Amino acid sequence: MTWVADAAENVRDRVLRGGVADLRPMPRTLIDKGPNRFVYRFSAYPGGDPGGDPVLLVPPLAAPSLCFDLRRGCSVAEHLVDRGRRLYLVDYGTVSFSDRRLGLEHWIDEVLPRTVRAVSADAGGAPVHVVAWCLGGILSLLTHADRPDLPIASITTVAAPIDMTAIPLIAPIKPLADLTNGWILTPVYRLLGGAPRALVKRAFQLSAFDKLVTKPYAILSHLDDRDYLAQLEAVDRFTDNMIAYPGRTFGQMYHRFFRANDLAEGEVDFGGRRISLREVKAPVLVIAGTGDGIAPQRAVRKLVDVLNNAAEVRFETAPGGHLGVLAGRGARTTTWAYVDDFLDTHAGLS
């Protein structure tokens, strides 16, 4: 009877109140902005006094920054604020056709350096500890490698793949792309000005196709589990808010990362300008998801091999898919614990 009562309450809230998840964003204040850059400081809890060095959350391109603030009770931001961290977030805003000429250099040269400096200045000049997801981790590492003068104290990457040959979704397509010299996608993204948000959304959903197909059954079998249903709602909101890739950025990722697999050797060429991840000197925490189809363990672990000049490199695995390893229910006791321990070691709390 308890199952029936709990299920009935959840169904009632989904129908009459629009859902069971608490999707309120964590309170934040805008401290800096510029092209493709909105930098926020999260508010401390009433009476709280954040200590230690600032922590900056860096999302990937094309994914909304709410990946770090999925829902109350399963929010990376809420967790870190609750731990007393001085927490910040960069949001890239929306991407339009007018942004089609922006390349990865824009984020490496402008967006992330200006963000790091703004966060450090707001925190009284303290060094910044970066916590980044997926491509956000790769861009953060490339930025630090290219700009060692930036006040970056440590970098945590979650689900950041650099060896594209280790990604099952890509491996079958690569020979055809090589055979046609990349022609398959090039005309498409040039015509559209990038990868449209609808396409990005579908690609993300297809990466977990088995879960997409079994979703109706999963909902029915978990009607009494409020936390489970709340997570599904939060993930649906996340995928509904995907963002487009700028054309030139998508082209660079396609040709340099996907086809040439440059990052697997730790270097990438931007028109004659090479950036090497072997120039990264700060401590780095690398986390991979055991069920991640977009960034499998082997694709992520390759970072350990190329970061051989970093002060420290830790490698950890945690349950979950691409988003789940960062913001899934299991991440609360795995990934977040690794991040806490790493920050306690390198940032600490005053």
Rank of each mutant, 00 (worst) to 15 (best):
A195F: 05
A132Y: 04
A260M: 09
A5Y: 12
D210F: 12
H129Q: 03
P296T: 08
F250I: 08
V235N: 00
R256V: 11
R12F: 15
V268L: 08
V286N: 04
A126N: 02
C74A: 13
F238W: 14
A203E: 00
A311H: 07
T115H: 06
T94G: 05
L343N: 09
D49R: 15
A44S: 15
P54R: 08
R12L: 15
D262M: 12
S43P: 03
L343H: 11
A203R: 02
G321R: 10
R190G: 05
I173C: 06
D305M: 09
R147A: 14
D146L: 06
T333S: 13
A132G: 02
D240R: 14
R329K: 11
A234C: 12
R332I: 09
A63D: 05
F342K: 06
D341N: 07
G266N: 09
L206M: 11
S221P: 00
G137C: 14
L142V: 06
L61C: 09
V304Y: 10
G48P: 02
S350F: 14
I108V: 15
G124V: 09
R147E: 01
V58L: 12
Y92L: 15
G51I: 07
K215A: 15
F68H: 00
G328I: 12
L303F: 09
G247V: 05
K201C: 13
R202F: 13
H255P: 02
A160F: 02
N309S: 11
D210L: 15
P216L: 11
G293V: 04
D109E: 07
P296F: 13
I31D: 00
A282N: 01
L232A: 06
S140G: 05
F42S: 07
S154D: 04
L139H: 04
A5M: 14
P50H: 07
N10Y: 10
A171G: 11
T115P: 06
R24V: 08
G52R: 06
D225M: 15
V280T: 05
F250D: 01
G320R: 02
D240L: 15
Y254N: 04
Q297N: 02
K215W: 07
A195G: 00
A230Y: 05
Y92W: 15
A218W: 09
D122Q: 06
P216A: 08
L56D: 01
T214G: 09
P25D: 00
R274K: 14
T249P: 01
L223I: 05
Y92E: 06
G124N: 04
P54S: 12
R248S: 13
Y217V: 14
D163V: 10
Y189E: 02
A311G: 01
G330S: 11
V131K: 02
R17C: 12
D122A: 15
R298K: 14
K302L: 12
R274M: 13
M1L: 10
K211Q: 13
Q297I: 14
L169C: 03
G34N: 08
R17T: 02
A218T: 07
I287T: 10
V90N: 05
R114I: 02
G136H: 01
T334A: 14
T157M: 08
V213S: 06
P283Q: 08
L192N: 00
A7Y: 08
L89M: 13
I275S: 10
G324Y: 07
G194Q: 00
A118S: 14
